[in-house]
């Protein structure tokens, strides 16, 4: 019984990992050519930006917050990079750091509103979402293509790996982001304070933890992650357009939740988030191989998964509550 409840927290993480393996195995059995390293690596290549932004979202959900502005921020970053590169003719060495700063500041301001003015994060980031989308159209209502040679290079360059497979630079960035997030969450005070805030903000405050700073920094970090995702996305799309990444915030939230991080905060795993994204990737790939289904079936499958997972989380919590005060 003890071992069972010990694992409660990780149940979703295990299920997600197993489900991913099962779906991958299913594809391998059904379709020839599915079972290859490259199919797996392609999931990373196609979803690198989603991985990065979902990591930022994991932090936000751990403290029990939410951020629905990230899709719009990604669009804004794409548009702004395109504009600065193509119209102002600035170099990537200037544009990329500037974009990261813009994203971080955007997050910082939202964080300040959320913490110091005590406004619901949903409301603040809803406003942020409208603002960022609006700004896209202020810059341009049309698609702005990126012709910068560095961006072109990043879009097409493939890092060769053994066995004839390859990855893109974006994948490396995503993997680095995962490693960094894992370290921050498990081995730094900042990360642990995030879990404490998610557990009970009032208690965290009374324990003498820097609640205000941590909360604001988490939204800043999330802004930074969405800017990084925006840059990776612009490598992928090579354009800025006001309708880029519409609804991406929901994909990110779904990935995080499927990865075992509940919306109530206090619990969360980056590795779970990675598998949350990859599950979406594997469903996409399955549908691609199947060939006749519309790609919207991915969304339907995700909707189904989300339902299952949220119900599962509720059941676990309910069971835990009825078990309390053992010991």
């Amino acid at each position: 019984m003890k071992a069972l409840s010990l694992n409660n927290k990780y149940v979703n993480l295990y299920i997600t990992t197993l489900l991913f393996c099962a779906l991958f195995a299913l594809g391998s059995v059904l379709y020839t050519g599915f079972f290859s390293g490259q199919v797996l690596l392609n999931m990373f290549i196609d979803n690198a930006f989603l991985i990065i932004t979902a990591i930022g979202m994991t932090f936000v959900l751990i403290i029990g917050g939410i951020d629905i502005s990230i899709g719009a921020v990604i669009a804004l970053i794409c548009m702004l990079s395109a504009y600065l590169l193509e119209v102002w003719h600035l170099g990537p060495l200037v544009v990329i750091p500037a974009m990261l700063i813009v994203g971080a500041v955007f997050g910082l301001v939202q964080g300040i509103f959320i913490h110091y003015f005590k406004i619901q994060p949903f409301i603040v980031t809803l406003a942020g979402m409208f603002l960022a989308r609006g700004l896209c159209y202020v810059i341009s209502i049309d698609t702005v293509l990126i012709t910068d040679p560095f961006y072109q290079f990043m879009a097409t360059y493939r890092i060769p790996l053994p066995f004839n497979s390859f990855i893109s630079v974006s994948v490396l960035i995503a993997l680095a982001a995962i490693a960094a997030a894992y370290y921050i969450l498990n081995y730094t005070r900042f990360g642990r304070t995030a879990y404490a805030i998610g557990g009970n903000e009032q208690s965290a405050l009374l324990m003498g933890l820097p609640v205000a700073r941590t909360k604001v920094l988490i939204y800043t970090l999330n802004g930074f992650c969405s800017a990084l995702a925006g840059i990776v996305f612009s490598f992928y799309m090579l354009s800025g357009y006001g309708l880029h990444a519409v609804g991406l915030e929901m994909d990110a939230i779904a990935s995080v939740v499927i990865g075992g991080t509940p919306l109530t905060g206090g619990i969360g795993f980056v590795t779970g988030t990675l598998f949350g994204v990859l599950i979406q990737g594997v469903i996409q790939t399955l549908i691609m191989f199947q060939g006749t289904l519309s790609s919207w079936w991915t969304k339907i499958a995700i909707a189904f998964l989300l339902c299952v997972f949220i119900v599962l989380q509720r059941l676990i919590v309910a069971r835990k509550e009825s078990r309390k005060s053992l010991a």
């Binding site: 730094t188 879990y195 009970n200 208690s203 009374l206 933890l209 206090g266």
Partner: peptide, 30 residues
């Protein structure tokens, strides 16, 4: 200070509740 009522984080481990905010470090992590 120990405030009235228990003001700790129930989601964290017992050990972490005692040390959070002043964790001993090794190399470059907790």
């Amino acid at each position: 200070t120990v405030y009235q009522e228990v003001n700790l984080c129930l989601n964290l481990s017992v050990a972490e509740n005692i040390f959070i905010g002043r964790e001993p470090r090794k190399y470059c992590g907790i």
